[in-house]
Each structure stands twice: as structure tokens, then as C-alpha cells.
Design a binder for these strands. Structure first.
Lengths: 333, 333
DNA sequence: CCTCCCCAAGAAATCGATTACACCTCCGAT
DNA sequence: ATCGGAGGTGTAATCGATTTCTTGGGGAGG
């Protein structure tokens, strides 16, 4: 592949001039033409590796995503990618697969590659490596999940309004025994969702006792199913369940189906995170929709602010409730 | 951040020695210890950008995916990422969003970043840039979708057996008027699926006339819905439809539902690509499952073979049929 | 005791760009 | 006429690693 020296020779100028022309520094028509012609003829493309070494800017952002196969995170990644690209950055995606060790491994790799900034939707609570990121001076923004003790802005959704509305509807529909499936204590996101839901229910005179708070470290299908099974074995099983993740919700639904129970007749089901195909499930699922694409965009902007040394605060965007049949609503058209 | 010079000074050796120790070249116990100690104390990490410049190897692979929000490609990307990582490469993902222009843009960026190799699940037929990739000497492997005129190995699934089985079942279930929703003529994948399905049906005495071949350039939800609508307006509407993409299938299902038709009673529906939540749709969807993860793995291995100068052939892995209720099977447990 | 060889380690070139600095030329002002 | 400034261009330093070439010291063999 042709390099800048070849171009310089062909155009009869020095490499400095070529560089200047290409970076739009000193455009003297005549010289400029010759250089651009040479670039054309040789099909020259600047080597980004060399450029990055010299300028200490790679033009790449890193994104650590907790689980790429989870549709919520997929859409998030897609939005981040879009926004980064439109701002001239490319994106290196690392999929933690909900495994803290793998996440650390990936962060390490990204730091070694000298990405300009890092977005992390953290798996678990392992923050040792995140502390290193901060120490290394690499701009960091947390996404969707905050991590205590890490000094970095966090971009995420606020479920308060949606949960308040949900509690009201459940109460109005006559549900008396709500339950929640949530990430284990110690995960900030999980604790927050639990607290907000509980408070919202209390406002309508509904209690959320500990026996109807089910948690599982396995934030997947099987975890959701196991928790639902435990719920149904209670002397007074719940008549409305909020699953704080879409995969767990599917597991829960499997368990209900396996026991011959019907949604929403026997148990209402509500899911955190809306996904396009929720309209196609049986029954269509009521969801708490996070503003996914906006979160992605905001995260990129916040990160860029940090990269450029501008001040950057945390961002909180409102989630909203999307009522469908699974919580006892009339079918949507 | 500490660099190799700092380490050298601290250990009282030259940079060359540090480099050798770190790359396991000259292991003299005593010197080695001192260097490693210095590395520890300074928290030194080699700068991959500098290393890449010198060695002309970045240790990164590129993956162009036609649509990241399509669950099939998500799983594919996940598998590729896993495999690449386990082999010491990191992955830069570019999402073409089914737009050829964006795809070209991304390929350009990846080439400029001097990735070691490129995997492309191509959007559309635009192959001008792919030709450039080949010309640039960057190892290239096509994934899922072959591109005529591009001299690169292609890793994809073979639907013959699955389609043959499907045709047999449809015939046995008494379906007489099969139809297919497919990518427009000119896309190799679409044409192949059409030809295979038609041949398989013919073996059971079923015809697939052109009026029951619906295509749409929009490989998404709306495209699928439009085609299904046209089918249903035929004097003799189909009684079994194969959608060659999962998003198009959802669109088709929406149209059926909107018209008050029932699956599979009125129309049987079969989908290309299996997705975890197909068991949760109403009704559960019969699918032709591609060996997604194996495809991803194979693609990485094929690419690595090319990178290392070993010969690499195209790979064809068998897809298989997963019968569920939407094509008239008994409910699966 | 001298020579030769081998091996470890240092010095310096190199990868391909950007950029500080020096130089040269041309022009206008004093 | 001379000086100063400005603008364009070339020379060379630089980024941080790897790698080639060179050097020096120690051990073995004569």
C-alpha cells in the first residue's frame, strides 16, 4: 500500500506538504492540485495507526455491553454505534456476557488499544478494573447501570413515573398481591427498581413483602423461571408480577404456561424494557419502555464532552409504560 | 501512562531488553525479574498502537453486519466475537443497517484502521468496495451472504435438507398452495432459497408459481407485511407461507392478524432463522434454524487461515427444520 | 595463556504519520 | 534601499514499540 512518502515523491513535494494538504492546513491551489492528483493516482489512504500514534487519538470509542444477545442492549449498542459513527468515531464493541471476568479482560484490551473513551454497561459489581480506567485518565461514561464508588457520569432511565402509573393500574384492576423479579441485592439498578416499585405500590395501599421479591444472580431465562416457580409455590401466590428484564420475563412466562396458568387471567405480567416483538407474544406483553436510542445518543454525547474536556453530568431520561394485554388491559388495536 | 522507556530506566536496562523480556525472547532469569518488577511497579502496559505500526499487525478483525437489530445477526456477531476473542483478536463491529452506502463507508474506515482481516455479511449487492478490499490485500471472508464476482471464501448455511423436509411436511398436512416471501431477484441468498424451496415442493407435486413468490427490497417488518397483504388479495391465496427472514415473518403475521386470519388454521407460517423467543409467539413459529454459532466460529477460523496464509475454502453447514405449531404441528411440550 | 565462539544486552534504524522550527521569497512600509 | 512580516515549504524530531546490527564479556579448547 502506498504511503505518504510515495505520494510526496510523485507530487514532487515533501511529506510535510502532503500532510498539510490532506489536513486542510495550507491550501495553495497549485501545490494542492498536484498532491491530490498523486493521492488519486496511487489510491493513497492515510495509515490511521501511524496517525494515532503521533496524535494520541485513535478516533475509536469502546463499548462494553453486558449481554449482546439481550434485545435491549442490542438496540442500545445500535444507537450508540449510529451516533458515534455520525460524529466520526468508530466503535469497538466488547460483549461481557454478564461475566465480570470477561468484562475486565475486555476493558484491558480496549485500554491497550488506546481508545479515546469508554462506555460501560457494567456486568455485576466488579469495579476494580473500572477504577483502573478512571486512574488511567481514559474518559469513562457508565451506561444504564451505575456503579457505586466510580467517579464517572452515568446515563440511564428513570422508571419512577412509569412505575407509579403501573401501580395505579394494577390497583385499579383489582390486583392485590404484586411481586417483582429483580437482580440480587447489591446491584444498584435492581435495588432502585425494587424501591421505586414498592413505594409506588404503597401509594395505592398495596404491600410488596419480601416473600414476593424474587431475585436471581442469573439474569436470564432460567433464573426468571426459577423465581416464578417459587412464587407459585407460595401459599398466597402473586396475582401480578413485574420482571425487571425481558429474558427473565420469558422464563417466567414459560413457568406459568407449564403450570397451565393464564396471563393475565391468573397472573398479570409486566416487563422492564420494551422489545419490538412483545406485540407478538401470547399474550402481548405490557412493558416499561426505556428510551433506548436516546440513552445511546446521550451517552455518546456525554462521553465526547469528557473527551474534549468539557464538563459532563449524569443524564436521567424518563421511561414510560406501554400497556398491553398481559396486565389485563383491553387488546390494543 | 508509563512507556517502555520508563520501564527500561527503572530496571536499568535498555528498551530493547524490555521488549525482549515482554515478548519472551531472551529469558535470563536475573534481568527478567528486574524488568518484570519494573513493569509491575509502573503498571506498564504496552501501547498497542505503536506495536501495530511496527509489526503491521493490529490484532483486530472487522465485522460488517447487515443489521445489528436482527436477532439472527446479533447471535452471529456474538459468536464471531466470542471466537475472535478466544483466539486473541478483538472485533470492530460495523453495522450496515442494510444500507450499501453505509456499508462501504464502514469498510473504508476499517481498512484505514488496518484491521488484520474482514468479515462481511453484505448488505445488497454493492461490491465495488469489496473489490477494493480484495485489491488491498486485506484477507476477506464473506458471511451468510455470498457476493458474485468477489474472490473470497464464503461461510454460510445450506438449507436444502431443511427445505426438503419442510416441503414433505406441508404436503403431508394437505397444504396445496405454498408461497414464499424472499429478497428481490439479484440477491444470491434469496434466489437460492427460492430455487431450493421450489425444487423441494416439486418433488411432492406442489407448484410455486410466480404469483406466490413475493419479494421486497425492504427486508424488514413492513416489507413482509406488504407482501403478505398482496398474497391475501389473490383469487387463490396461499395456505402456507415461508418467510425467508424473521423480521419479514413478523410483518406477515401482523397482516394475518389484522385480517382476522388464524395461524396455522388458515395459513401455515414458517420462518427462516430460529430465534429464542419463537417459542413464545402466538402461535409458536416453525423455523428453519441455521447453525448460527457454528457459522460464526467457522468464519473466524476461515479468516484466520487466510491471514496466516493458509488455504481456506468456503464452508457450507446444514440448516435444520424446527417444527412448531405455526405450520400445523401438534404443540411442542 | 591466548584465541575463538556464543550469547546477552545496548545502540540505532524503522514503521508512517504530524508538527515545531528554520528558511526562503515576496511584498509593503519606513 | 532596507527592514520586517507573512506565508509557503522543507528538514528533522517525535510518538512507542520491534528488530537488526554491533559490541563486550565469559567459557571452552588448544
Amino acid at each position: 500500500m502506498a504511503n505518504i512518502k510515495d505520494v510526496a515523491e510523485r507530487a514532487g513535494v515533501s511529506v510535510a506538504t502532503v500532510s498539510r494538504v490532506l489536513n486542510g492546513r495550507s491550501p495553495v491551489a497549485e501545490t494542492r492540485e498536484r498532491v491530490l492528483a498523486a493521492v488519486q493516482e496511487l489510491g493513497y489512504r492515510p495509515n490511521n495507526v501511524a496517525r494515532a500514534l503521533r496524535t494520541a487519538r485513535t478516533g475509536a470509542l469502546g463499548l462494553i455491553i453486558s449481554d449482546l444477545t439481550n434485545p435491549f442492549f442490542t438496540e442500545l449498542a445500535d444507537a450508540v454505534e449510529d451516533e458515534a459513527r455520525s460524529l466520526g468515531y468508530s466503535l469497538v464493541i466488547g460483549n461481557a456476557g454478564e461475566r465480570p471476568a470477561q468484562q475486565d479482560d475486555y476493558i484491558r484490551t480496549l485500554l491497550d488499544r488506546r481508545i479515546d473513551g469508554l462506555l460501560v454497561s457494567s456486568a455485576g459489581t466488579g469495579s476494580a478494573m473500572l477504577r483502573e480506567v478512571v486512574a488511567s485518565g481514559t474518559p469513562l461514561v457508565l451506561l444504564d447501570r451505575s456503579v457505586p464508588g466510580i467517579d464517572a457520569p452515568c446515563v440511564r432511565a428513570d422508571g419512577r413515573a412509569a412505575l407509579t402509573e403501573l401501580a395505579g393500574r394494577l390497583a385499579a384492576l383489582g390486583r392485590r398481591r404484586p411481586a417483582i423479579i429483580v437482580a440480587p441485592a447489591g446491584t444498584p439498578t435492581g435495588e432502585e427498581r425494587l424501591a421505586l416499585f414498592r413505594a409506588a405500590l404503597a401509594a395505592h395501599g398495596l404491600a410488596l413483602p419480601d416473600e414476593r421479591v424474587g431475585s436471581t444472580p442469573d439474569l436470564q431465562h432460567t433464573g426468571g423461571r426459577r423465581v416464578m416457580s417459587a412464587f407459585l409455590d407460595l401459599p398466597e401466590p402473586p396475582d401480578a408480577v413485574l420482571a425487571t428484564d425481558n429474558l427473565m420475563a420469558l422464563g417466567a412466562m414459560d413457568e406459568l404456561r407449564a403450570r397451565g396458568l393464564r396471563v393475565p387471567d391468573d397472573v398479570a405480567l409486566v416487563v422492564y424494557d420494551d422489545v419490538p416483538w412483545f406485540t407478538h407474544t401470547d399474550p402481548p406483553l405490557t412493558a416499561i419502555a426505556q428510551p433506548t436510542r436516546e440513552l445511546g445518543r446521550a451517552a455518546v454525547h456525554t462521553l465526547l464532552a469528557r473527551i474534549e474536556g468539557r464538563p459532563a453530568d449524569s443524564v436521567l431520561l424518563p421511561a414510560h409504560l406501554v400497556p398491553r394485554r398481559s396486565c389485563g388491559e383491553p387488546p390494543t388495536p
